[in-house]
Simulated assay, not measured.
Amino acid sequence: MHRLTVPAVLARNVAGAWGDAGRRWLADLPGVVAAVAADWRLTLADPYDLTYHWVAPATRADGAPVVLKLGVPGSPQLATEAAALTAYGGCGAVALLAHDPARGALLLERADPGTPLRALVPAADDEATAAVADVARRLHRPPPPGHGLPGLARLGRAFDGYLRSFPDDGPLPRGLVGKAAEVFAGLLATAPAGVLLHGDLHHDNVLRATRERWLAIDPHGLVGDPGYEAGALLYNPDPTRPDARLLPLVLPRVEALAHGLGLSADRVVAWGFVKAVLSEVWTVEDGGAPGGQAFAVARLLAGHLSV
């Protein structure tokens, strides 16, 4: 690996998310990478495209291909990812091989060849949707005792925060956000027993592999209604970029996910609507401009709500 440099997007995102703690982590990152690589006997290659974590392919001393992921120590995202991967035990997701919470380090199985599911879209979208449903079925299980993973109810704070911040129409139509909050509450009230959820299961987080045909990466680690898992797939890939060519795929995806996950199509539509609006609310929270594919999908699904 060449001398470690911190891309501007990583520096901006980490500082924005973690403030001074993030800036200290960035300053210490070259030394942490070197120390962890030495302790775990890794030969590192150049990192992947970086957003909020430092992630790079590596090779262990025994020749095994792995991935090293580093983040700000104490980050809830890293803790929940590690807890979820531990619970999965390599079934449906890459295996967690080592975890050093004090240094914010995860050592992960590398999916080989690692082609993301987005490569099938749009030519083989039905195959991509079936693959996600299959992965989700393998991931969903009762949460382990004492798991400490967050439930879905906390996600509703984003709707509440948006509606407080924008008493009139703001970056998003207030009625759309209010309706999503209402549907979300109804879904929680009628949810079946909660299962362990990936929480962000879409075309870039499912990779082709050899140990299993497809493996999930980057779980958010949530517990709740399995229908929530269908949401992210409906407005991906590229949720921030409107693409009218993909809108005709949304309703066929709904039917395929309902069949693959054993859910009613109405419930998949409702979760898809909620998650699409939630994605746009998060975009606003992060200072971005809404109006991407997630917004288009939310408007489409709003016309098909029956709950």
Rank of each mutant, 00 (worst) to 15 (best):
F166T: 11
L197H: 07
L207D: 01
V195Y: 09
V206M: 11
V177D: 04
F184L: 02
D204P: 00
P171I: 12
L207Y: 10
D204E: 13
Y162P: 12
H203T: 01
A209I: 13
K179A: 08
R164I: 08
P192K: 09
A185T: 14
V177P: 01
L197I: 07
R211T: 12
A185F: 12
L188R: 13
A185D: 14
D168A: 08
K179D: 15
A209G: 14
H198D: 00
F159S: 01
P192C: 03
A180D: 10
R208E: 12
A181F: 03
A185M: 07
L176V: 06
L196H: 05
A158K: 06
E182W: 14
L188S: 01
G178E: 15
R211M: 03
S165L: 11
R157G: 06
A191S: 12
L201T: 03
A189W: 11
V177L: 04
A181Q: 15
R164F: 14
P167H: 14
G178R: 09
V183M: 06
T190D: 15
A189E: 07
A181T: 04
A191Y: 15
R208P: 04
L172S: 01
H203N: 01
D200W: 01
G186Y: 06
L172G: 03
D168G: 04
T190S: 13
F184T: 05
D168E: 07
L207H: 10
N205R: 03
L196K: 02
A191D: 08
Y162S: 00
R174D: 10
L172F: 14
D204N: 10
Y162F: 09
V183N: 02
H202V: 05
Y162Q: 04
P167G: 01
